[in-house]
Nucleic acid binder design. Structure first.
Length: 867
RNA sequence: GGGCGAAUAGCUCAGUUGGUUCAGAGCACCUGGUUUACACCCAGGGGGUCGGGGGUUCGAAUCCCUCUUCGCCCA
C-alpha cells in the first residue's frame, strides 16, 4: 500500500470515527465486566462548543478510552440540559423577530415554539463533540426535559415536599428584571464597581433640623419606611422616638434604633427600604415596618413609588438627584466602590425583591454530602477544593427552586379555594388529594396549577441517577450496574451549582455517592489571562482549530498545559505543538514501514537497543499508568510524548537503523513493529485518530478490528539493568556530538574512542557516534580531546592540532567544581550530629557521593598530568 | 470585612512523608546542520538568591511566623 508522505487528518478523522460508530464500540450494555461510567456535564442546549468544552471533553475522552483499553465496560453518557432562562430568552427573541410577544401566546403554544427551537438547534453541540473524537455512547443521549427525566424531577419534588423539605414562602429573592424571574444565590455574580455615595438629609418632623443618611441607591428612597441609627450612637439619641420626612414624597417615617447599623459607615444613619434590601427587610421585620414595593417586575417604578412611575430604575437614579437638590435634600456626593450583583444568565443588575417562591431546605441534605467529601469517599482533584466546598456546605442557605418561566418542569402544585393547595403528579391525583383534604368535590376547573417552573439545576442535580432512570425505577438493571459513576470532570465554577447538589441527591435517592472522583479542570483563558468570551472575540472557534491542526493536535495542545485546577492559557503555539507531534508520529511510522526485513543475523547494537527499549517501554508505561491513576493527565501525556519523540525516534530508531540500502534483520524488524504498536496503544487515549490510522496500516487487520478495543498488556519492569547502562552510553554519545560540533567534524567522518575503563554498550556508542573502534587503555592518546563520563576518562584522537591550554582549562574547571563538591560532602560527613541523626540510608548516599567524587578527582588529575 | 489558595527559568507549570548532583519539564531563546522518516525536523547550548525577612532542624523550594503581591469564594 502506498503511504502518503503527509498525514491527512481530516480524512482519517472521518473514516475512523464512522468506523467506531459502525462497529458500536462506544455503546455499552451491562455485562459481567467491571463498569466504568462517566456522565457528561450536560452542556446548555442552546450552546455551541467553546474551548472550555474542548478541555473538559478531551479529558473525559482520555479517561474513557483508557478505561476501555484496561478491559472495563465503559459507558460515557452524553446529553444536554434545557437551560430554562437562556433557552426561553432565545425563543422569546426569535418570536419577537416574527412580531410575536410572549404574552400573546398561551403556555401550550409557547412550549411548542420552544420544542421546535430545541429540535432545530439543540443537537449542534453534541455533533461538534463528535469532531473532537468523543467516544460517548450516543444511543444513551439524554435531555433534561425528556419524559423520563422530566418525570424524575416531578417525582423528586413531590417526595421532598412530602418529607417536609420543600416549602413555599415570601422571601427576599434575587430578581432578574430582564428574565423576569427569581434566581438562586448561586446565579448572582457580584462585581466591584465605581459608583457614588449620595448624602441626603431628611427633615425631622415638625422641626428645622435634619438627619443625614448615605445611600448608593437614591431612587429607593421612594420606598423608605424608616431611618435607623445605632442605639449606642450618642449623636442621634436626641432623635429617638421622633419621625422624619422622606424627601419628595413627604412621608413621615419613624427613626428607629437597631444595633445592625455601623456607626462608622457613612453618617451613621441608615435609610430603611424593607422591600428592596435584604438587611432592610430583616430590620423591617424586627421593627414591624411597612413594606412599599416600588418596582415592577421589569425594573421600572410602580404606582407605589408615586413619582417617576414606569421609568427605569437607572433612569430614575439620574432624574431624582436634581429633584433632591432642588428640594434642598442633597448634601454631597462621594465616589464609592461597591459590589453589585448581576444575573449570571442575562447580565441584568439583580433587584432584591420580596416574592413568594418555593425553597428547598438544605441543612439536612448537606450533612452526608459534606461528610463523604471530607473523608475522601469522594475524592476531589486537586484536593484544595475540599476547603472551598466545606466552607459553602457549612454556611449553606435554602435553595430557591422556582423560576417565573414556562420552559422547564412545571411545579406540580395545584391551588384551589383561595390559597389551599395540594402537590400531585397529575391533575387527577390533585383532584383526589384536594377532595381528601377538604371532603368537598372539585372539578378540573376548580384547580389551578402553579405557573412557575423549577430551576434547571433541580434537573441537573439528579443527572447521574436520572440518565439511568434510577428515580422512576430505582431497581433497574442499568442504574444497578452503572451507578455510582466513576469520574466527574467539571469546572470549579459550578462546584456549588451542581457538584455539591449531585452529591446531596445521590445520598437522598441512592444512599450512595454519585461518583468516586471529581476532577476540576481549569478555566481556558487567553495569553493575557483574560477569560475567553464572545464579546472580547478572543476565543478561537474549536471547529476551525480542528480543521487546521487536526483533532489530535488540538487535543494534545489543550492537554499539554492543563494541570488539574490550573487555568489554561491558550495560544496557537500549543495546538501547533500538537500538530507537529502528530506529524512526528506519522514520520516515525513511515520510517518503520519503509524497512525491509530479511532473514539474517541480528547486529549486536540492534540486540542491545531492542533489549533496552523493552525495559524503557515497561518503565515509562508504568509511570504513565501512575500518572493517570492520580489524574495527572498532562504529565501522562508528556510521558508518552517524550517516550515516542526522544527515546523511540531519536535513540531507538537511530540505533537499529540499518546501513543505507541494506535490509533489516527480521528479529529487529518484528521488535520495532511491536514497539510502535504498543506505543500507539499507550498514546491512543490522547490522540485517538492518528494512532488508529497508524495501527491499522502497521499490519494486515481484519474488518472490525480496532486499536481502541485492544487491551493494554501488563507491563512489569523486572529487569531494568540496561537502563543505567544506556544512560552512560547516551552521555558518551552526547559528548562525542559536542566535540564534533566544536571542532566542525561532520557526522560522516569516522572517529575512534579511547577509554580508561570498560564502558557498557560500546556497540551502541559506536553506531550512534560513528566510532570505528573503541580501545580500553590507561594511556591518553597523543593529540586527543578528553571528557569524563561515569568516572571514566574518554578521549577522541584528533588529526589537527589540539589547543592544550583550552583542554587544561576545561579539566581544571571541572576539577575545581568536583573538589568543592567533595569538600561539602566531607564536611557533612564529619558533622557528628548529621551522622548520628540522619537515617543510615542518607548517610550511605553521602558516602557514595564522596567515593565517586574522589574517583572522579583522581581521573581528572590523571588527565591533567597526561596533557 | 471574613475565608481559601497561590508566588519556583522569559512564559506555563511539576517538585508526593524535609534527605540521591534537587533546583526540574514543556514552550520560548541562542548556535550549528540540504545525514535519502521528519525543517511541522535533527544535534548542541545558555538561563532561576525557589516573592522578601525571620525561625525550627545535622539538613528547608518543602515545616512554622511575618510582610508584600496576585487570584478565587463568601458577606
Amino acid at each position: 500500500m502506498e503511504i502518503p508522505a503527509k498525514y491527512q487528518h481530516t480524512k482519517a478523522e472521518n473514516k475512523w470515527y464512522n468506523y467506531w460508530l459502525d462497529n458500536q464500540f462506544f455503546h455499552s450494555t451491562p455485562d459481567e465486566r467491571e463498569p466504568y461510567t462517566i456522565v457528561i456535564p450536560p452542556p446548555n442546549v442552546t450552546g455551541v462548543l467553546h474551548m472550555g468544552h474542548m478541555l473538559n471533553n478531551t479529558i473525559q475522552d482520555v479517561l474513557a478510552r483508557r478505561a476501555r483499553m484496561e478491559g472495563k465496560n465503559v459507558c460515557w453518557v452524553p446529553g444536554t440540559d434545557h437551560a430554562s432562562i437562556a433557552t426561553e430568552a432565545k425563543v422569546v427573541n426569535k418570536l419577537r423577530e416574527e412580531g410575536i410577544t410572549k404574552d400573546q401566546l398561551t403556555r401550550e403554544s409557547f412550549m411548542e415554539h420552544a420544542w421546535e427551537w430545541k429540535e432545530k438547534h439543540g443537537g449542534i453541540i453534541l455533533e461538534q463533540l463528535k469532531k473532537l473524537g468523543a467516544s460517548c455512547d450516543w444511543e444513551r443521549t439524554r435531555f433534561t426535559m425528556d419524559k423520563e427525566l422530566y418525570d424524575s424531577v416531578i417525582k423528586v419534588f413531590i417526595d421532598l415536599y412530602e418529607k417536609g423539605l420543600i416549602y413555599r414562602g415570601v422571601r427576599m429573592v434575587n430578581w432578574d428584571p430582564v428574565a423576569k424571574t427569581a434566581v438562586s444565590d448561586e446565579e448572582v455574580i457580584h462585581k466591584e464597581e465605581q459608583s457614588k455615595l449620595y448624602y441626603l438629609r431628611y427633615q425631622i418632623e415638625g422641626e428645622e433640623d435634619y438627619i443625614t443618611i448615605a445611600t448608593t441607591r437614591p431612587e429607593t428612597i421612594l420606598g423608605d419606611t424608616a431611618v435607623c441609627v445605632n442605639p449606642n450612637d450618642e449623636r442621634f439619641t436626641k432623635y429617638a422616638g421622633k419621625k422624619c420626612i422622606v424627601p419628595l414624597v413627604n412621608r413621615a417615617v419613624p427613626i428607629i434604633q437597631d444595633e445592625y447599623v455601623d456607626i462608622e459607615f457613612g453618617t451613621g444613619a441608615l435609610k430603611i427600604t424593607p422591600a428592596h434590601d435584604e438587611n432592610d427587610y430583616e430590620i423591617g421585620m424586627r421593627h414591624k415596618l411597612e413594606t412599599i414595593d416600588i418596582f415592577n417586575d421589569n425594573g421600572t417604578l410602580s404606582e407605589a413609588a408615586e413619582l417617576f412611575v414606569d421609568k427605569d430604575r437607572f433612569e430614575v437614579r439620574d432624574l431624582i438627584i436634581p429633584e433632591l437638590e432642588k428640594a434642598g435634600n442633597l448634601v454631597k456626593i462621594e465616589d464609592y466602590t461597591n459590589k453589585v450583583g448581576y444575573s449570571e444568565r442575562t447580565d441584568a443588575v439583580i433587584e432584591p425583591k420580596l416574592s413568594a417562591q418555593w425553597f428547598l431546605k438544605m441543612s439536612e441534605l448537606a450533612k452526608p454530602a459534606l461528610e463523604h467529601v471530607m473523608n475522601d469517599d469522594i475524592k476531589f482533584h486537586p484536593a484544595k477544593f475540599k476547603n472551598v466546598y466545606r466552607h459553602w456546605m457549612e454556611n449553606i442557605r435554602d435553595w430557591c427552586i422556582s423560576r417565573q418561566l414556562w420552559w422547564g418542569q412545571r411545579i406540580p402544585v395545584y391551588y384551589f379555594d383561595n390559597g389551599e393547595y395540594v402537590v400531585a403528579s397529575s391533575i387527577d391525583e390533585a383532584l383526589r388529594k384536594a377532595e381528601e383534604k377538604t371532603g368537598k368535590t372539585y372539578t378540573e376547573a376548580d384547580l389551578c396549577q402553579d405557573e412557575d417552573v423549577l430551576d434547571t439545576w433541580f434537573s441537573s442535580w439528579l443527572w447521574p441517577i436520572s440518565v439511568f432512570n434510577g428515580i422512576n425505577k430505582p431497581d433497574n438493571k442499568d442504574i444497578n450496574y452503572y451507578y455510582p459513576t466513576n469520574d466527574l470532570i467539571t469546572g470549579p465554577d459550578i462546584i456549588f451549582f451542581w457538584v455539591a447538589r449531585m452529591i446531596m441527591a445521590g445520598f437522598e435517592y441512592r444512599k450512595e455517592i454519585p461518583f468516586k472522583n471529581v476532577y476540576f479542570t481549569g478555566i481556558v483563558r487567553d495569553s493575557q489571562r483574560r477569560k475567553m468570551s464572545k464579546q472580547l472575540g478572543n476565543s478561537p472557534d474549536p471547529l476551525d482549530l480542528i480543521k487546521e491542526y487536526g483533532a489530535d493536535g488540538v487535543r494534545v495542545g489543550i492537554l499539554l498545559s492543563a494541570p488539574a485546577g490550573g487555568d489554561l492559557l491558550y495560544e496557537d503555539s500549543l495546538v501547533e505543538q500538537g500538530r507537529n507531534f502528530t506529524t512526528k508520529i506519522w514520520n516515525t511510522f513511515r520510517l518503520v514501514k519503509s524497512w525491509n526485513a530479511e532473514d539474517k543475523s541480528q547486529p549486536k547494537y540492534a540486540a542491545t537497543a531492542v533489549a533496552w527499549f523493552e525495559q524503557k517501554l515497561a518503565q515509562e508505561a508504568s509511570k504513565l499508568n501512575e500518572q493517570l491513576k492520580s489524574y495527572r493527565i498532562s504529565e501522562a501525556l508528556m510521558t508518552a510524548y517524550t517516550l515516542i519523540r526522544d527515546d523511540f525516534s531519536s535513540w531507538y530508531l537511530e540505533a537499529v537503523k540499518p546501513p543505507f540500502g541494506e535490509a533489516m534483520d527480521r528479529t529487529t524488524y518484528d521488535a520495532s513493529v511491536n514497539f510502535l504498536e504498543q506505543l500507539m496503544q499507550l498514546l491512543h487515549p490522547f490522540m485517538p485518530f492518528v494512532t488508529e490510522e497508524v495501527w491499522q496500516l502497521l499490519r494486515e487487520r481484519e474488518d472490525g478490528e480496532s486499536l481502541m478495543v485492544t487491551t493494554l498488556p501488563n507491563y512489569t519492569n523486572e529487569d531494568a539493568s540496561l537502563l543505567e547502562d544506556i544512560q552512560v552510553a547516551q552521555e558518551v554519545v552526547t559528548a562525542i556530538r559536542t566535540i564534533r560540533k566544536d571542532k566542525n567534524i561532520g557526522f560522516k567522518e569516522e572517529l575512534t574512542l579511547t577509554v580508561s575503563h570498560e564502558i557498557p554498550c560500546t556497540e551502541v556508542i559506536e553506531k550512534m557516534g560513528n566510532i570505528s573502534e573503541t580501545t580500553v587503555t590507561g594511556e591518553k592518546p597523543e593529540q586527543s580531546i578528553g571528557f569524563t563520563v561515569n568516572n571514566t576518562s574518554c578521549y577522541i584522537p584528533m588529526t589537527g592540532a589540539i589547543d592544550i591550554e583550552a583542554e587544561r582549562k576545561k579539566i581544571t574547571e571541572e576539577l575545581d567544581y568536583t573538589k568543592g563538591f567533595l569538600n561539602s560532602v566531607t564536611k557533612k560527613l564529619s558533622n557528628e550530629r548529621f551522622v548520628n541523626n540522619a537515617p543510615e540510608k542518607v548517610v550511605a548516599i553521602e558516602q557514595k557521593k564522596k567515593a565517586d567524587a574522589e574517583a572522579k578527582i583522581a581521573e581528572l588529575e590523571a588527565q591533567l598530568k597526561a596533557l
